[in-house]
Design a protein around this nucleic acid. Structure first.
Length: 138
DNA sequence: GCCAACGTTGGC
DNA sequence: GCCAACGTTGGC
């Protein structure tokens, strides 16, 4: 199983809405690196759900419910989307400040490539962030 | 609201 | 194919 982190602005699609809906279409990605990460996702992979712009924290864990398929909102036909479903909220959100304050996490893509919206997470970093969020890794 | 990072576009 | 201009993202 692989681990990922996906970003969303709460004003466009918040964690609470994913929980309420029970699933989400992760569309709208228009960055090739992010799209490549989407294509590498497999059903059952886990992804941290990060709130950007507002909140600035990892708030929950989602699971990949469907692998990449063409994004109908993309007229060029080059980009893809996946489906997500909620697994659990973190008992305690892990903020960007918390992550920056942890030396072991200083090299994760969330910090190194601040604009990337879909990124892989190392298993060690996954476990650590779960621990910081007082939540079991699986 | 500002600005840094960075991807994309278009002129040459 | 280079590079300046411009647009977008996201932290502060």
């Amino acid at each position: 199983m692989a681990y990922w982190l996906v970003k969303s602005e709460p004003s466009s699609y918040a964690w609470e809405r994913l929980v309420k809906d029970g699933h989400a279409h992760w569309d709208g990605v228009r960055n090739h690196q992010a799209a490549a990460n989407l294509k590498a996702m497999k059903v059952g992979d886990r992804a941290f759900f990060y709130h950007s712009n507002e909140g600035l924290a990892v708030v929950g864990i989602a699971e990949i419910a469907k692998t990449a398929y063409p994004d109908p909102s993309d007229k060029t036909g080059k980009f893809v989307m996946v489906d997500l479903k909620p697994v659990t909220a973190l008992k305690q959100p892990v903020t960007l400040a918390d992550i920056k304050a942890e030396p072991k996490l200083k090299d994760i893509a969330l910090i190194r490539q601040s604009r990337l919206s879909v990124m892989p997470i190392e298993p060690a970093a996954w476990k650590l962030i779960c621990k910081m969020g007082a939540t079991k890794p699986d």
